[in-house]
């Protein structure tokens, strides 16, 4: 038997209790390498994003090369290596939403808050993201505000939703 198979998984990077959630996910999958995506879901759920420390810890725990962990983290759209704002606004730019004027909604947010898709405002209040088809084409143009799908958006509606989050 290879000696590393007998080793205990490494200790978490800090005493932060949220690492327990991550550890529980890995344990549930028996620390198998295929649990990589599920584990990174858990890290992001707990911490909001994936930093280098987290990637190194997951790589060591699941015995997956760091390069592969980084490769997976950057390949999938859901994972982010940057901290997100307190609130997120996702606007769909899929083709059905394009027809119904999604670009006007996007331009309105970009202009008012001076951010581009993928950015967060300086006060960390708002992250703007775009999605390519939310599977809600009957409700176009659609968006997601802090996890809630909102249909038939107009620039006024979008700005109104965001204004509620702003101090």
């Amino acid at each position: 038997m290879l000696s590393y198979l007998l080793k205990q998984p490494p200790a978490p990077p800090s005493g932060d209790k949220r690492w327990k959630l991550v550890g529980a996910t890995m344990r549930r999958y028996g620390y198998e390498s295929y649990a990589l995506i599920e584990t990174m879901h858990a890290v992001q759920e707990a911490f909001g994003f994936l930093d280098e420390e987290a990637l190194r810890f997951v790589a060591a725990s699941l015995r997956v090369p760091l390069s592969r962990v980084y490769g997976v983290a950057t390949f999938y759209h859901y994972f982010t290596l940057k901290p997100q704002g307190r609130h997120t606004c996702v606007l769909c730019t899929g083709t059905a939403c394009y027809i119904k004027g999604s670009s006007k909604n996007l331009a309105a947010v970009e202009d008012k808050y001076k951010i581009k898709p993928g950015d967060t405002t300086k006060d960390d209040n708002l992250s703007l993201l775009t999605a390519r088809c939310l599977g809600s084409c009957g409700l176009a143009p659609a968006g997601v505000f802090d996890g809630e799908v909102v249909a038939k958006l107009t620039p006024d509606l979008v700005m109104g939703r965001i204004a509620r989050w702003m101090p």
Partner: peptide, 10 residues
Amino acid sequence: EMEPGTFKDR
């Protein structure tokens, strides 16, 4: 389901 314009499996 992620094909643009497709919202049936949902």
